[in-house]
Design a protein around this nucleic acid. Structure first.
Lengths: 149, 149
DNA sequence: TTAATTTGCATCGCAAGCGACATAAATAAG
DNA sequence: CTTATTTATGTCGCTTGCGATGCAAATTAA
């Protein structure tokens, strides 16, 4: 980039921060989803929990946390709210009384059908092809894997 | 990608979500900064405010908000905490009594020196060259600009 | 000049996130 | 068998983020 070649690179400039760009993109992305999620009556983190449960129902709190990189101190209250809204059911596991299994209710299962068009509508509104999105996703995953080390 | 060509693409799979990857990257990035910011006694959003103020001191709440895409209902409490920690001073503007100008204190100015190595140390710990980071940043900015429309 | 509108900041309430810590069940060590 | 440790989840307190709303100063319209 001309930027790097010609002028001195100032590492403390906001415009040179990858971290801020990711932070801003994340918040704006949540905002972008909101009108769609409002229709379903759920929040963005709740949507992520649904994505996990729609793939695999009846898993534990910790397993959800592993997939979303969230700890139980975040998930427990979140799941309780989802239970309040009768999207899920939290049940103690018989074999291991410590574990709490999370099961989708009918209402929670039915939401999948209503949500199924959201990703492609989002891609459209972002003017981003699936290929381009997956490419960007892969680059970010390299970063994520570095941070998980 | 083989992925796209060979199997059916399931848009509701967590692993196919760009949005989740950005969300995860953002939280992990904040976590990655934390040991460095802890040493300075500041949080990540406060660090972003510092980046803005180190570039231009004495600006209004709204101007900070424009740069960080944050509204006053987030910034006002955040700035009050920063004032409590005596990093900044909030002063009513003479010409326009509605405006509150934010000025760095000596303590706030001195922090810049202590922070100056953070970006490059982060890049190192992320195993990410400046060029690669700026490239990824540019791609994310295209997305951001779409979302700001 | 007076009234209506806009602008800049703030307050309130709520949902995340997360560090620090608590608790009970399961497991391992003695 | 009893004690120590680990595991799975939960509570508490704090900072963000943000929608809805409030409010006073500034600006515009009438």
């Amino acid at each position: 980039m001309d930027n790097l070649a010609n002028k001195e690179f100032n590492p403390l400039k906001l415009e040179n921060q990858l971290c801020f760009t990711i932070y801003a993109a994340s918040r704006l992305m949540t905002r972008q989803y909101q009108p769609y999620l409002d229709q379903l009556g759920i929040t963005y983190p709740q949507y992520l929990v649904f994505l996990v449960l729609w793939e695999k129902d009846g898993i534990g709190v910790n397993e959800i946390g592993c997939k979303l990189y969230l700890n139980t101190n975040t998930l427990t209250p979140l799941l309780k709210r989802m239970e309040q809204l009768s999207f899920i059911k939290r049940t103690k596991c018989c074999q291991d009384e410590r574990k709490v299994r999370i099961y989708l209710s009918e209402k929670g299962k039915n939401l999948k059908e209503e949500a199924k068009n959201i990703p492609l509508e989002m891609a459209k509104s972002l003017n981003c092809s699936v290929e381009k999105a997956m490419c960007l996703k892969n680059e970010l995953e390299i970063l994520i894997n570095q941070m998980l080390k």
